[in-house]
Computed example of a mutant assay.
Amino acid sequence: MVLAALSGALDTALDRTVVPGFSKIGYAVRRRLPSWPADPRPGSLVGKHVVVTGATSGLGTATAHQLSDLGAHVHLVVRNADKAEKVARELTGPSTTWVCDLGDLDSVRACAEAMLADAPPIDAIVHNAGAMPPERTESPQGHELSMSIHVLGPVLLTDLLLPKLEGHDARVVLVTSGGMYAQALPVDDPDYERGDYAPATAYARSKRTQVELLPVLTVRWAAAGIAVYVMHPGWAATPGVTESLPTFDKVMGPILRDADEGADTSTWLVAASPRPRGGGLWMDRRERSTSFFGRNSPTSDERRRMWQWVASATGLTP
């Protein structure tokens, strides 16, 4: 009992100090705590079909490999089929490639239509697709691109695929970022049309939106038996970080997690038995607070208004 309490206190302290907790230091320490959950058993995903978006780079590729190693048939949802072919060749198990640009809602609808026609029942979706445009960029539908790729596309794709997900105790994981802790829900300017555009701010605002939509999406998809999670990978060394945040990458590089460490909790959420409780933010196999000391926590009315904007933008019924 005392050991468990001490482990919990150390884990929480790592969260609050941020740098150790989000870096590879936090991951290494937590893995050695007695509270660390067991790894998924070998072969635990044999016969399962798991969709991974953004599977051709960084955390997406690492997630695809980890799921494949556990026996899953991995469905690679990508913009570039040639890059996906290289990933598919290196997987240990079967895979299928679907071409889709998560930032283009028409592409999302076309992909969903193809998957509804030809894909088998789906057991999980891991939304890894991400981008940090250097300047304000609009999607084909006129939405700020970070918000479209990280929020609108994933919500629409998942909602359209409900017929493939329902009845399987399915799991949906949205991969977020620690930057979201510094941003409030952009309910009054979701498309970042006001003020000076900052790429990292736009990225973090969209990631905050993922987190704050959790209660809404949990209720919306409950009838299909889906558990929804947002997963914070910590600070991981990926091509996206190197390209978009070169100063951060240079300063923090020595303590950044590798892609496998960053992807670990996504894979664990998909494979863990029994299924972890949905509706929360997870990092290092444990549910975490969505804000520190209540900072940037929205009201229920702000969440409702944000969801109404998402539903309107995607054409879904609120």
Rank of each mutant, 00 (worst) to 15 (best):
residue 161 L to W: 04
residue 123 D to N: 15
residue 165 L to R: 00
residue 160 L to Y: 14
residue 160 L to D: 14
residue 116 L to T: 03
residue 101 D to E: 15
residue 190 P to M: 07
residue 174 L to N: 06
residue 178 G to L: 02
residue 163 P to S: 00
residue 123 D to V: 09
residue 148 S to C: 07
residue 192 Y to E: 11
residue 133 P to Y: 05
residue 149 I to S: 06
residue 171 R to Y: 13
residue 194 R to W: 05
residue 165 L to M: 07
residue 145 L to I: 05
residue 118 D to L: 06
residue 179 G to I: 06
residue 94 P to H: 05
residue 143 H to E: 04
residue 156 L to F: 13
residue 125 I to M: 14
residue 183 Q to N: 08
residue 115 M to D: 10
residue 155 V to H: 07
residue 204 A to P: 13
residue 120 P to W: 09
residue 122 I to Y: 12
residue 151 V to A: 12
residue 111 C to H: 01
residue 130 G to Q: 03
residue 153 G to E: 02
residue 163 P to T: 00
residue 128 N to V: 14
residue 130 G to L: 08
residue 160 L to H: 11
residue 151 V to T: 07
residue 109 R to H: 03
residue 142 G to E: 03
residue 147 M to R: 01
residue 198 A to F: 05
residue 154 P to H: 14
residue 113 E to H: 12
residue 124 A to E: 10
residue 199 P to M: 01
residue 167 G to C: 11
residue 141 Q to I: 04
residue 154 P to Q: 07
residue 167 G to P: 13
residue 97 T to M: 11
residue 170 A to Q: 09
residue 190 P to Y: 01
residue 130 G to I: 04
residue 199 P to F: 01
residue 195 G to C: 14
residue 148 S to N: 00
residue 132 M to P: 01
residue 169 D to W: 06
residue 148 S to T: 00
residue 184 A to F: 06
residue 175 V to M: 15
residue 132 M to V: 13
residue 163 P to A: 03
residue 163 P to M: 06
residue 202 A to H: 09
residue 176 T to M: 04
residue 117 A to T: 08
residue 95 S to K: 02
residue 136 R to P: 12
residue 174 L to H: 10
residue 204 A to C: 11
residue 100 C to W: 14
residue 172 V to P: 15
residue 170 A to W: 15
residue 140 P to N: 01
residue 182 A to G: 14
residue 177 S to A: 14
residue 149 I to F: 13
residue 106 D to V: 08
residue 146 S to Y: 01
residue 105 L to S: 07
residue 124 A to L: 12
residue 117 A to D: 12
residue 155 V to E: 09
residue 186 P to T: 11
residue 124 A to H: 13
residue 118 D to Y: 12
residue 135 E to I: 01
residue 103 G to L: 02
residue 140 P to G: 07
residue 184 A to N: 08
residue 167 G to D: 05
residue 196 D to Y: 03
residue 199 P to T: 00
residue 112 A to V: 09
residue 165 L to V: 08
residue 195 G to K: 06
residue 180 M to Y: 15
residue 188 D to C: 02
residue 106 D to G: 09
residue 147 M to E: 01
residue 166 E to N: 03
residue 97 T to L: 11
residue 202 A to N: 09
residue 131 A to H: 05
residue 134 P to Y: 10
residue 121 P to G: 07
residue 171 R to M: 04
residue 160 L to M: 15
residue 153 G to D: 04
residue 171 R to C: 09
residue 146 S to H: 05
residue 184 A to D: 14
residue 113 E to L: 13
residue 106 D to I: 03
residue 198 A to L: 11
residue 164 K to V: 08
residue 164 K to T: 07
residue 135 E to G: 02
residue 94 P to D: 12
residue 114 A to D: 15
residue 129 A to M: 03
